[in-house]
Design a protein around this nucleic acid. Structure first.
Lengths: 145, 145
DNA sequence: CGGCGATCGTCAAGGTGCTTGACCGTTGCC
DNA sequence: GGCAACGGTCAAGCACCTTGACGATCGCCG
């Protein structure tokens, strides 16, 4: 009745939940945050900060792509770049005080989304969904256990 | 270890499979086709053709968005627009002969992707994945059966 | 210690796959 | 026959990346 192929279905599902996440954050008073920012807020080490390249690796994207996101967050005052004392090439992306507050909201917003899905899908199906997606995204980490 | 939230995970999974689909089509001799085109090739009625608005509805996107895709396919000679005899406002998007050949390749390419996933995930998990995704995308069609 | 390939961050450009907004012509119902 | 609703279109813009190229620094090998 709809005929969507699997790749497209994944994209559509992403959009639905990304819109939900956006709405959650707007409700919590941060209308300028977008779903893509989650990749940083949820991946950055809260105390020490994290290198750009490492953030990119965690989000499975290029460092150039991650830079655009970090640039955006820096401009909005949520993170700042500080030199990495251990390597003069590197910088650490670190949350500002404001950024830490937002990171907390982010985690709550994501939890709200995921809990809604748990409720709608049931615990077992939810867990399987996550497992299956991670398997598609990073097959080598799910070798014949 | 990766920290991706569910919306992001869906996006990442989409990208993996969309890249696979792209590769499948390139292998089959159509390097100019992109995953997004599937929304048309798999949704258009093979004989009669289908209205733009209806295609958009099936793909769960705006008619303007669908127009861009159809424009692209028309320029490449895969579809053409013909007036709808039943409504002077409307046009039918119809496959050309070339378009029909490609639609067949598309279905095969999508099948190849989906069969690989069936193999990697197992039949049961694959079916559940589809069901769950459709549920997220179109909740009203999955009301308390 | 000197050279050199690898790594970190950055700049620039491009691309996919949409969106919102505005509009015109046609339809069809009161 | 008047008018809201619908079908298609033009225009602009946005989210979220990509590939390519490059300078600075690192660290290993000889």
């Amino acid at each position: 009745m709809d005929g969507s192929d699997l790749p497209r279905l994944l994209l559509e599902a992403h959009r639905v939940l990304a819109a939900d996440l956006d709405a959650e954050l707007a409700d919590r008073g941060y209308p300028d945050l977008r779903p893509g920012h989650a990749a940083v807020f949820l991946a950055v080490d809260r105390r020490s900060g994290t290198r750009l390249t490492e953030l990119a690796r965690r989000a499975r994207m290029t460092k150039q792509g991650m830079m655009l996101t970090v640039d955006d967050l820096e401009q909005r005052g949520y993170v700042r770049r500080v030199p990495d004392p251990e390597d003069a090439r590197a910088k650490l992306v670190r949350l500002t005080a404001r950024g830490r507050r937002v990171a907390a909201e982010y985690r709550r917003a994501v939890q709200a989304i995921e809990q809604r899905q748990r409720r709608d899908l049931g615990e077992r199906r939810y867990e399987q969904l996550r497992e299956v997606l991670e398997r598609i995204v990073a097959p080598e980490e799910h070798e014949v256990a």
